[in-house]
Design a protein around this nucleic acid. Structure first.
Lengths: 183, 183
DNA sequence: CGCTAAACGCAAGGAATGTGCTTTAAGCTG
DNA sequence: CAGCTTAAAGCACATTCCTTGCGTTTAGCG
């Protein structure tokens, strides 16, 4: 049985907060389960039982951290909306902490559900932007194409070639998507 | 000073071989440094000193494993060459062991050099294919575009959405690149 | 209000990690 | 080819972490 409230919830919140705090304070490989447990006021065995592993815990925290909190801005037209979103996305994700969170999310993720969640966040935002544009009568590509042409290249470079990434690259990807696809 | 030969080289080879063998035999999280050391006939401290970490060792082995051993086949025209390469790439990388190696390569890689090496392998192969096509007089896109349009989407889906990947997807990406870019 | 079982705390055993010190041998020099 | 220098491996030990069994707390429910 899952227990979503009460002590279990308090423990989960305390542990997540401890991880977030410690990630900002100590070095990455200095982060250990006992350290997190002490900060959270919890026994190490509790963390091992609930998460099984430091990597799975980090993956859990990372996904929560990567969840977007606000809907993408509405600037009135698709190109501007998508460009702004892509620039912000690249900026956040290519930062050192962003890259660390992405790696954590990918890492302790045996079945790939956490990574899939990250992708779903991006797809959701893009879906909102495209739907708004469609409602305005604009000619829009589908979400899958946008993921392949904009999100995937940015993410690939963040992970595999983390140099020379800037807002201009994001703008170019959006321009190639919108220019080449339809309009 | 680096010592490329002699005992150091033997130890490195033995350790790499031990890792490869054990990855095929035991469960992933059952793989420990002492286990590798015993199989390789080496002291655990040697591994800790040389690699520092099990993840860095795995990353090291993974990059070596992901290095392509043969040049891409020459079928006589760009579309066929690139399609064949993409199909093979996706097939290898999306397999469970391929995904595991990719994750290992990304994992124990503080400065991103190992991940960059993996990307360089793909870029090199694509470069060869494109150069051959160019020498034949075909109209070819540049390597960066091919990476963005073909490699990045495949890799993104392998990592973040590992379902429903097949050769048809690889063919479609190549077709969209060649159809949309020039001819 | 009492029951049940999931989740946490505690403690101990075993395994892994990391480090000084010694020993081996690779590569250079005369 | 002999001797020297020093990087790298072996060894032993201390520390820390991981794991599990058992008792206790408490969330969720009748």
């Amino acid at each position: 049985m899952v227990r979503p409230g009460g002590r279990s919830a308090r423990v989960q919140a305390a542990v997540h907060e401890a991880v977030r705090d410690l990630l900002a304070e100590v070095d990455r490989d200095a982060l250990t389960v006992p350290l997190v447990a002490q900060r959270a006021g919890v026994t190490p065995s509790t963390i091992y039982r609930r998460w099984g592993d430091l990597q799975e815990l980090l993956s859990d925290v990372a996904v929560e951290r990567l969840r977007p909190d606000t809907a993408p801005d509405d600037h009135g037209d698709l190109r501007t909306d998508l460009t702004a979103w892509a620039e912000q996305f690249l900026d956040e994700m290519s930062s050192p902490s962003g890259r660390a969170y992405i790696r954590d999310a990918l890492l302790g993720d045996p079945d790939g559900s956490n990574a899939g969640q990250c992708s779903a966040y991006a797809a959701e935002h893009i879906g909102v932007v495209l739907a708004r544009a469609g409602a305005r009568g604009e000619d829009v590509p589908d979400v899958e194409t946008a993921m392949d042409r904009v999100v995937a290249p940015m993410m690939y470079r963040i992970l595999f070639r983390p140099t020379g990434l800037d807002a201009a690259y994001a703008r170019r990807l959006v321009a190639e998507l919108l220019g080449g696809a339809r309009s």
